[in-house]
């Protein structure tokens, strides 16, 4: 049980760390797919199958595709793919900030007295989830639907090639 969790954690953290430090953007994106699959494995481990499928569909399927499209649309030559190293100061500052956050979070987690249930994972069937979604949570579902629609429209407006490029900048 715990051994599987540690394996999954190694997969997630390892692939993410490597992805975040690689030079080649395409390789980073592909490694992140691996990391997202690892997160899906974590959900499976925790007994949340439906969330695992959603994770695979949305992240490993959809988001990764958008990322790859964005990468391919925004490069001009093969050399652009491997990004020049960021300035050293920025990298050090970033890692320091990340490290400080990590330290603080670790301390907080370890110092808190967390009770856990000794029992097995709560089971939730797809049917229950569906009833929950169209019952008590129906307002949230509608709001999410609106958000998704607006995001879709917004993405189209942002990415559409506007003919009056200059006008926007005038005021």
């Amino acid at each position: 049980m715990t051994a599987a969790l540690i394996l999954i954690a190694l997969l997630i953290l390892g692939s993410t760390a490597v992805a975040m430090s690689l030079r080649n953007l395409i390789h980073s994106a592909l490694l992140l797919v691996l990391s997202w699959m690892g997160i899906a494995a974590f959900y499976l481990w925790a007994g949340a199958e439906f969330v695992a499928f959603a994770q695979v569909l949305v992240y490993a399927g959809a988001v990764s595709m958008i990322v790859l499209f964005a990468v391919l649309l925004t490069r001009r030559s093969r050399a652009d793919l491997s990004i020049a190293p960021a300035s050293l100061r920025r990298a050090v500052a970033g890692v320091l900030a990340g490290g400080a956050t990590a330290g603080v979070l670790t301390l907080a987690v370890l110092r808190t007295n967390l009770q856990i249930a000794p029992s097995a994972a709560p089971t939730v069937t797809v049917q229950q989830l569906g009833l929950e979604l169209i019952g008590p949570q129906v307002a949230s579902v509608l709001v999410v639907g609106v958000i998704l629609t607006v995001a879709l429209l917004g993405a189209v407006v942002l990415a559409a090639s506007d003919r009056n490029d200059g006008k926007e900048d005038a005021p």
């Binding site: 900030a97 990340g98 400080a100 956050t101 603080v104 979070l105 301390l107 907080a108 110092r111």
Partner: peptide
């Protein structure tokens, strides 16, 4: 934002 978050957590702890 990150530093503010760290300070906040430290304050709470």
């Amino acid at each position: 934002i990150a530093l503010g978050f760290v300070v906040l957590v430290l304050l709470v702890m």
